[in-house]
Design a binder for these strands. Sequence first.
DNA 1: CCGTCATTCAATGGAATAATTGAATGACGG
DNA 2: CCGTCATTCAATTATTCCATTGAATGACGG
Lengths: 221, 221
Amino acid sequence: MSIRNPKQALYEQFAIVAKALGHPLRLEMIEHLAQGARSVEVLAAKLARPVANISQHLQALRRAGIVSAERDGKFVHYSLADDSVLSAFAAVRGVAERQLAEVDRIVRGYFDARDDMQPVTRRELRRLMRDGLVTLIDVRPADEFALGHVPGAINVPLGKVRAWSADAAIGREIVAYCRGPWCVMSFEAVAALRALGHSARRLEDGMPEWKAAGLPVEVAA
Amino acid sequence: MSIRNPKQALYEQFAIVAKALGHPLRLEMIEHLAQGARSVEVLAAKLARPVANISQHLQALRRAGIVSAERDGKFVHYSLADDSVLSAFAAVRGVAERQLAEVDRIVRGYFDARDDMQPVTRRELRRLMRDGLVTLIDVRPADEFALGHVPGAINVPLGKVRAWSADAAIGREIVAYCRGPWCVMSFEAVAALRALGHSARRLEDGMPEWKAAGLPVEVAA
DNA sequence: CCGTCATTCAATGGAATAATTGAATGACGG
DNA sequence: CCGTCATTCAATTATTCCATTGAATGACGG
């Protein structure tokens, strides 16, 4: 280890954190961990990756102080070290959104830019929910829903949206949310619902942001 | 280029930004650019690095949408693309501060933890300045001071602190600030002033944060 | 105490990144 | 149009990072 002055040493520490965020798979892992603690195996299954690979990335995230590990018998449960990680994730996303035309292109391309994709804000959703004007669906898998969801939301995992919507009244607006502002599950849910003649919109972002905003969260018994 | 789904493509875009932040030298460059636009040559001189090296890092930052370039005759002036970059920098710093014991160790080690290093908050500084209770010094180089400084601050570049303090009254408190919360110049200024018998403290952070907080900035004529 | 299972470690090869050097571009002044 | 200067590009080497594989660790259940 070469001798460094304190200033360089500090920048190196900051760079360790940023570097750990600088890999698509690790970012995806963080977004999953933002939904709740996960074991290595479960995370590997969710991301369809070899367990050893996920384990190594988790080590990298742990070295950077981004995730923390807790042993529970044979299992090791990983979770985000604290809320500052979500802030950093959101800030990086913010730079990308504002500066990289590519992000805009991807999002628009995904939805074909065919009609208004104006998302519902958290504030607006709270008002609509209070007045009973909309049906709120959480399109994440059941296990993530169980760990915490918006009060009043119904869990309709993405694969079941079509079947569920058969029983829903046409005309009543549906709002969908999932893991975060770029989580594609809510995009797909809204697209499917609209194709079936429903009025549907996305919440502007997802569960981690809802919780980070200090809004109430309901946990399954 | 392999075929990717939109979700992966988005994570890749986000990773580009984080990866660009994941190098100590680039972080230091960002902190300098946060003080104002700089040409490649000036930046290289400030960081004591070969021009070509800085140029390449600037290209990397530009590809990530972090800095923008503006040609002015023979010179190219680089500056931060927008304020979201400062947010991202601060967020990464926040993770490092909270999670990496190493950061704390470095800062403490730098000051030997011998007495209270409680910094002055922005709010407190504004009150002290309004009541005329402190002398505020900006220890950055003169060119950075000229591009914007806290109203009422005196520019005392680090190398001149000792000479300047000879004329300062003992007993009146001095507050020093520079480029940001980890900028070591203010640490050194405070250490030097205290060694000379003055009462001195640091502002909690520096110029970019002051500006980002929407507080008034004074620019040299 | 032994088998099983979740996780981590170690070693490999291949890809990306970084610093350095020297040459190439592009704009200004004469 | 030519020399100068700021900047960028290209090529090289050393380093680091990444995915994969198979073996090692550590804890539980019998």
